[in-house]
Design a protein around this nucleic acid. Structure first.
Length: 572
RNA sequence: UGGGGCGUGGCCAAGUGGCAAGGCACGGGGUUUUGGUCCCCGGAUCGGAGGUUCGAAUCCUUCCGCCCCAGCCA
């Protein structure tokens, strides 16, 4: 196997006397720059090493942004490597979704797609090398016995009775392990390090276990599989990784990785640990997300309420917003919980600039304009994006019967309510001033319709100041759609923080999904295709869901607009 | 009570001995045919206590708090 090594010609250092030309001069950038300056490495090669046992989430986006983003930044290259050393939990569905998600984020690893399983034979040979050096041995202890002899945090472990087997016997046994002569779990290959080490990772860790499971790539070729701790560092080394960026919990493992590499005398990457991402109102563990999927608490890994990349994508998030978020949160070793609102801010900022505006009524209330001629239709011009003149304009139909948002009308308006109420006048967005003359109610007293009048002289003129502008859709031209509104999946900012005996899933938000089946859209939206994003004016950014069928549009709300009225109303 | 990390405003986060960046959130004001956007304005003495120094968030000592490690998971 030959994997290209760093190309010094492409090495890109920031200009002297300046911090990197990017917003966050974080410690990983500083380390890389220093390494490059001192010539510790000839360039930068990084890797993102997911285990294909679940879908990628936004926490992985942070890791990818670092691994791949930094390599790009310094003119290096990056590998996507699946750490597929545990066939019991891994599936091709996951290797496919992971590739799709990384690509969606905007990265192209070219032909640098690898698998730890590509190295199984090499790893096996390395293991034999270690055995020959007397640095590894075959151990016949059971899993339980290994646990018992490992010692505790404060007490050293005791050596395995098999620790001093002769090299030849170890070699023979190890080869027979590979050949399938022994039952699952009956023996392991262990590194011979130090059973008294205060670092438990160094107490003769297991390198290989016997496990008869069909691997998604190697099939049944192997019945022994390398442990992560044995496979990972060597895989990085084989690939010539210079900066092996990982999360904090592996800090304790670094001495073990160093030990293996030194014993083998192979390329030594620098490992750098950072604090993983936590988000308020979110759980970020593949195990727990899998639980939500399996128990049907959500409708799959790509449910728009999930913090998975596929969930965010479906919901309407842009990869640009997610990358911007990853940059803005910074990188440090302090464990932290980032406010969800920052993520939402990043999306709003991106979409405010790029998304077209449309009018859509989510909870329709019928309005009849009594002084507007029956049968008349006017096509009025509307700006597509006030932030981007190049986005142009479109025509929207105006007629005698409209729908407006139920929330935009109150029979008895609270203080500071600037929208429609009996006797009040508001601006119809992109159209005329409208006054509410009469309220039609049903037997139960519920408002079913408004009788209003418009002022024909107010199309592009404002003879009077009105305080409110509301959106609307012409009834006869409206396109019906289903709109799905989302709230956070959990009601608690820290969902996992529950009293003893309670289940974190008790924090699930019963209102995380609200389906509005009778939304009315302006006709320009009729042909919208899945993935299309726009702003429903005054409400938020929405995206067409793949559940849409011809003539049956489904929209997801990606994020609301900021709503200062909601704040005022809440305060009372 | 072993080892490894971490502690700067509500949440992130710069700062590496010279007189506390920035973002989000929050509050106030202005513009506005989105109560959106945009534009102003507002707040920390750096976990605590000692010490070194003309001067410390940055150096030393000590204390406190939080996280990770006892899978043949990754």
């Amino acid at each position: 196997m030959s994997i290209p090594h760093p190309d010094p010609d492409k090495l890109r250092l920031p200009p002297e006397g300046e911090t990197p030309g990017t917003p966050q001069p974080h410690f990983i950038r500083q380390i890389i720059i220093e390494d490059l300056k001192q010539g510790r490495f000839r360039g930068v090669i990084t890797r993102f090493p997911p285990e294909p046992n679940g879908y990628l989430h936004i926490g992985h986006a942070k890791a990818i942004h670092l691994d791949f983003g930094l390599a790009e930044e310094y003119g290096g290259s990056y590998n996507l490597r699946f750490d597929d050393t545990n066939p019991a939990k891994e599936e091709v569905e996951y290797v496919e979704s992971i590739q799709e998600d990384v690509r969606w984020l905007g990265f192209d690893w070219g032909d640098r797609l690898f698998y730890a399983s590509d190295y199984f034979e090499q790893l096996y040979q390395f293991a034999e090398d270690l055995i020959r050096k007397g640095a590894a041995y075959v151990c016949d202890l059971s899993a339980e016995q290994i646990r018992e002899t490992r010692g505790t945090l404060t007490r050293p472990g005791v050596e395995s009775p098999y620790r001093h087997r002769p090299v030849d016997e170890n070699l023979d046994l190890f080869r027979r392990m590979r050949a399938g002569e022994f039952p699952d779990g009956s023996r392991t290959l262990r590194a011979k390090i130090d059973m008294a080490s205060p670092n438990l990772n160094l107490r003769d860790p297991v390198m290989y276990r016997i496990l008869r499971a069909t691997h998604h790539r190697t099939g049944d070729a192997w019945c022994i599989y390398p442990m992560y701790d044995w496979a990972h560092g060597q895989s990085d080394s084989i690939e010539g990784i210079t900066h092996s960026i990982c999360t904090l919990e592996f800090e304790d493992h670094r001495p073990l990785y160093d030990w293996f590499i030194e014993q083998l005398g192979i390329h030594h990457p620098r490992q750098i640990e950072f604090a993983r991402l936590n988000l308020t109102y979110t759980v970020m563990s593949k195990r727990k997300l899998l639980e939500l999927v399996r128990e049907g608490r959500v409708h799959g890994w790509d449910d728009p309420r999930m913090p998975t990349l596929s969930g965010f994508r479906r919901r309407g998030y842009t990869p640009e917003a997610i990358r911007d978020f990853c940059e803005r949160i910074g990188v440090a070793k302090k464990e932290s919980v980032v406010d969800l609102q920052l993520l939402e801010h990043c999306l709003r900022e991106d979409l405010n600039r790029r998304a077209e505006r449309r009018m859509a009524v989510l909870r329709p209330l019928k309005v009849v304009i009594e002084n507007y001629p029956e049968g008349q239709v006017e096509w009025l011009e509307a700006v597509n994006n006030p932030e981007d003149p190049a986005a142009g304009t479109r025509q929207v139909p105006f007629s005698r019967v409209l729908y407006i948002e139920r929330d935009d009308f109150r029979e008895a308006p609270p203080p500071k309510f600037h929208r429609l109420y009996p006797g009040n006048e508001v601006r119809l967005r992109n159209a005329y001033l409208l006054r509410c003359d009469r309220v039609v109610t049903d037997e139960a007293g519920a408002v079913v319709e408004l009788r209003c009048s418009y002022d024909p002289d107010t199309l592009n003129a404002s003879p009077r100041k009105v305080k409110g502008t509301i959106h609307w859709v012409s009834a006869e031209h409206a396109v019906k759609a289903e709109v799905r509104l989302y709230e956070t999946l959990f009601t608690a900012p820290d969902p996992l923080n529950v009293p003893d005996g309670a289940d974190w899933k008790d924090n699930l938000n019963p209102h995380s999904l609200d389906v509005l089946p009778e939304a009315k859209l302006e006709p320009s939206l009729k042909e919208a295709k899945p993935g299309y994003r726009c702003q429903f004016e005054r409400q938020g950014y929405f995206a067409v869901d793949p559940d849409s069928k011809d003539g049956q549009l489904v929209f997801n709300r990606a994020v609301t607009l900021k709503d200062s009225w909601a704040k005022i109303e809440k305060r009372g």
